[in-house]
Nucleic acid binder design. Structure first.
Lengths: 215, 215
DNA sequence: CTGCAATCTGACCATACGGTCAGAAAAGGA
DNA sequence: TCCTTTTCTGACCGTATGGTCAGATTGCAG
């Protein structure tokens, strides 16, 4: 068990690598617990247990429960923003909105806990991400609404309130994460590849046809 | 201040009337607090304060926090079921689905807290309403899916997976309650009559056109 | 009016939680 | 190797919470 055999990166020592891995593990555990129990129902003990650490060690990496929660929410917001780029550089709604639906459905499948934490945060009045809503999200939404309006003006899609269309896109896609439990019960079990494909195609078909884009 | 002047009903004495009024007040307060803080974040003290009662009195009417929460969720489920009847007895999707969207949008506007509690409950794995999901909701969903399939077979609407269509209806309408805070921020303030009408018409237009029904 | 049952409430209790801290253990540089 | 810094941890603390209870108060039947 020599101490210098791995040497993968030139910069990062074992200290730094361990630190990052531990922080990541804590954030993952926290995301799960916050999604399952909500902020109030989550306990540092539960998070520590899932991360495989003593509770006191959590407070070495994250000063407080609030800070840990904030970090979790911020991480989710980053993923959200990356998916939002799927809509960029599309020549029209047929490609842009289809790509956006695909990206958001993929997030609902891969990061259901993140989506749930985000939903919970917004439902409770966005106590920690209010500024994100008022700045980043607001700007992004306004920009996308303008693009959609441009498509309408160019006759590429039927007149539709861009703002409410965006809400419908968020709602339809995030529903598969936030209400995943209900869907699984009604489906008689977890969704498989075919189920997810059917869901994705259903959402795309209804919405694209709904805005007057041929499918 | 005589004690027998009101005498409105023949059956209900003052005792019973008071009891019902107090229970209602507690349930209303609990719905608000549970929606704002989640089950874990809600405290009996907060609920009691909002209801204008000492905390100990809550435990006279509801044995535990869990029972109070269960009663709140069950009450919401009843409202949900009543709205579901809007889809019944419709000759086709144009009327039935439009009426259902109208009914669900009205619930999102009138009972946003109830919708949030329901969403939170489902997101956390439906610990108290699992049996409702597996019985009442499952049966209702299967029945409605059959009706929709009948409309498709009769050529009244475009072929669309009925299950996923129902999910989209739930998602699009409940989004205005569950994510109401986010919508208000992006809207620059609370939604007025015109905003709600625009939202309702947008949802109906996209979905009805999306399933091949002329608007 | 009288007695009984229903209703109400302040004070109290055990528990669980977020957070702290002194000191042990480990890692890295000289 | 020795010393410093970082990392880790069991034990502990103050507080807030859900829940209890004895006793006061109130409505109602006889």
């Amino acid at each position: 068990m020599s101490a210098s055999s791995d040497a993968e990166g030139p910069r990062i020592g074992r200290r730094e690598a361990n630190r990052r891995a531990t922080e990541e593990a804590i954030l993952n555990a926290a995301e799960t617990i916050f999604a399952e129990a909500g902020f109030g129902g989550a306990t540092m003990q539960l998070i520590a247990g899932l991360a495989g650490l003593p509770k006191a060690n959590l407070h070495y990496y994250f000063a407080s429960k609030e800070e840990l929660y904030r970090r979790v929410v911020e991480r989710i917001f980053q993923i959200w923003l990356e998916a939002a780029r799927a809509m960029d550089d599309a020549p029209g709604p047929a490609e842009g909105i289809a790509a956006y639906i695909d990206a958001k459905m993929e997030i609902s499948r891969r990061h259901p806990n993140g989506s749930k934490v985000w939903a919970s945060e917004v439902m409770h009045g966005a106590p920690v991400i209010q500024d994100y809503l008022e700045t980043t999200l607001r700007d992004w939404t306004a920009g996308r609404a303008a693009v959609i309006q441009g498509w309408i003006d160019a006759g590429k899609m039927a007149p539709t309130d861009p703002q409410h269309l965006l809400y419908m896109l968020w709602a339809a896609t995030q529903h598969y994460a936030d209400f995943g439990h209900q869907i699984e019960v009604l489906n008689g079990g977890p969704l498989g590849d075919a189920d997810w494909r059917a869901a994705r195609e259903s959402v795309k078909r209804v919405i694209l046809r709904g805005i007057g884009v041929a499918v």
